Amino acid sequence: MMTRPQLTPVSDRAPAGPDAALDTLARAIWAHGRDRGIRAMEALAATAVNRRYRTPGRTLADLVQDPDLFAAWDPDDPRHAEMLAADSRDPAFAAALRVARRAMAGVDGIVGGADHFVDDADPLPDWASSLTPTASLAGFSFYRA
């Protein structure tokens, strides 16, 4: 007797399966750092991976999709739709995929263990006011909170 496969709902925010974290991270670092270069995307990726190591019980994909880390995951953010539509035909997104893959496999040596970042063009949030940045790069300040 054959059984019919059941459909499982999949979030429209990222693919399911083992590539979810890679794709989600690449989209986030592309949306926030593509105009600031590879080093900016590397720093953003390292920050997300650092946060994952300090947040047991949550997947990297889940953490990255939190708009408190990467605002572009907020549907109201102006980068959101473009981020979801990006694909590897865009050289910057292809680079973001490579950066995300390396960050997921390696050790952070670029942001000093930071697990938060602030775009220097934005007002400093309350949580960062008493902290000293672990690194500053490409218009971002990185913090270990």
Rank of each mutant, 00 (worst) to 15 (best):
D62F: 05
A26I: 14
V107K: 10
L60H: 11
L60E: 05
A92K: 10
P133T: 06
T3A: 05
R102N: 01
A128H: 12
Y53D: 11
V49I: 13
E82Q: 15
R39S: 15
P125T: 09
P125C: 12
A71Q: 05
D77V: 09
A61I: 08
L124H: 06
R36T: 05
D23N: 08
R144W: 06
A121Q: 12
R39A: 15
F140T: 03
P5L: 12
P5K: 06
T55S: 15
F70S: 00
R13V: 02
L137Q: 04
A31P: 09
D23M: 05
F117E: 02
T59N: 01
W30T: 04
L44Q: 08
N50E: 04
A95F: 00
A135S: 11
M2H: 02
H80V: 12
S88C: 03
R51F: 06
D19G: 15
T59I: 00
Q65R: 15
L60D: 07
V49E: 02
D66W: 10
R144I: 02
V64K: 07
V99T: 14
M104Q: 15
F117K: 00
L60A: 07
W73K: 09
V49W: 01
G112I: 04
L97I: 14
D126Q: 11
G57I: 01
F140K: 04
M83T: 01
D87S: 10
A45V: 02
P78V: 10
A86V: 11
Y143A: 02
D76H: 03
T8P: 00
V10S: 14
F142N: 04
Y143R: 00
P18L: 04
A92E: 14
